[in-house]
Design a protein around this nucleic acid. Structure first.
Lengths: 252, 252
DNA sequence: TCCCAATTGTGACGCAGGTCACGTTCGACT
DNA sequence: AGTCGAACGTGACCTGCGTCACAATTGGGA
């Protein structure tokens, strides 16, 4: 598929900090880790295949050990909304597996993926046998809730599209590389994908990028993004929607 | 404040099913419940006061035993967005208390409230002592994640306002009373509050209600809402945004 | 090297809905 | 019953952005 947007060892910056397998293993007793590994079975998925779909009864948790996957919601009849892009090391389907509710999102592989799978029953009984692990999982779920609230502005209708794009870019900065010109980072996403992450159209994303470039806020060279004016970007992100121009004028 | 919108024994239908104290107690060992109760301290909040604010380091969990509270996010400089209205019996601040992340939302009392409070350290050590409770809490968090994804359409910009209102109304139906005319339920919210739940303006809510009434989908008498045509309401909720009229016409 | 499909860039147009400005109705309290 | 503030109802206007259409790049494979 496509141009060389994802060639090489791309590192994503805006992935989940919490739902990572290593987050779970850290602090875990060695034998717990061993039991965990023992019940894990490895499955390979080709690019573009579906790991699970929203609405399905939860079969268990998936550990994305290799590859990258899209987490989307598809309100029927509409373009799928990208909730998040999951990177290697993440656990998928955790909340559904624990609560027994259906999977909330659909996971589709963006690259060939190697995935570890643990059946729901096995996972639950492991949690009951290992209170430490169970506690850790509860913490991870709590963090994951926190992260979804942080993503909230991206879904907020009342923000103008440029503010949402600014928000998204800012969320990537953490993983960027500081230079004396500004923060430099790789941007291995098409405008189309970005549009589906912030709930807008491809053209609007293109135009917003153009506007940022004109304002010297960012600079683009291929898939490399250079943030020249972080402060201004932050102010755009906050820009509290519609111009109050009119109200101001009226005061005269 | 206000007209008699909330006089009498109002029952809300669209509250959380998962973050309820009784959900937690169910299946809990009697002594666990007792330990739980023992560390709970009761606090009274007058109407309009704040229980906790988004961004604050978590002090502990709050059990809303009497009264009603607003959970809002306030992107600074903008009208607060109502995430959910919490009813008596709900636990607030659970995910933040467990994960240690700051509270994600602000909780403000809409009526005088009686609230039980458990300090974070106490709560955490209780979870470590009682694996059963810990497991139960993890399940509740999972369910709570599921519920937030269900609320997702309300935040989706691409849906027209009327569809989001329809969604919201549908989420109330579960608690309604079946009659031969349709589902009857109390609607103790102002248009302004509803607007802030679906991210639109007060006027738009008023107009959407008017449209539903004209189409004989609903009927309003004071704060009582009668749903005449459930099927039509569902179809409005799904109405997949912008009219494709133009594209259709072009086919000829 | 050339070609081609996938991306990016840009203008034109239309409309949903935010905002303002009013008028109307409701219900609580005196 | 009269008053008054809150909530509801409605028209006018304007803007952001979705959509369509088409041009200009870009980079990987033949």
């Amino acid at each position: 598929m496509s141009r060389a947007r994802d060639s090489g060892s791309v590192e994503y910056f805006f992935n989940s900090q919490s739902l990572r397998e290593d987050q779970l293993f850290q602090d875990m007793l060695p034998e717990a880790v061993k039991a965990f590994e023992a019940m894990k079975q490895i499955v390979l998925y080709p690019e573009g295949s579906m790991i699970f779909a929203e609405g399905q009864r939860p079969r268990g948790v998936y550990l994305l050990s290799q590859g990258r996957a899209n987490l989307v919601m598809r309100p029927k009849g509409k373009r799928a909304r990208i909730i998040r892009i999951a990177e290697q090391g993440e656990m998928l389907g955790l909340s559904a597996t624990i609560s027994g509710e259906p999977y909330e999102v659909t996971a589709e592989t963006l690259t060939p993926c190697q995935v570890g799978f643990i059946k729901r029953d096995d996972f639950l009984s492991l949690l009951r046998e290992q209170p430490e692990t169970c506690f850790r999982v509860a913490q991870l779920l709590g963090q994951s809730i926190h992260e979804s609230y942080e993503r909230f502005p991206l879904f907020d209708k009342t923000l103008p599209a440029s503010a949402k794009l600014a928000h998204l870019i800012l969320s990537w900065c953490a993983g960027g590389e500081e230079t004396d010109e500004g923060i430099r980072l790789r941007l291995p996403l098409t405008h189309e994908q970005i549009a589906r992450m912030i709930g807008t159209s491809r053209e609007t994303v293109t135009r917003a990028f153009g506007e940022f470039r004109r304002k010297q806020i960012i600079q683009l060279e291929g898939a490399t993004l250079l943030i020249l004016n972080l402060a201004e970007l932050e102010s755009v992100a906050k820009s509290c929607q519609r111009s109050q121009k009119l109200s101001c004028l009226r005061n005269f």
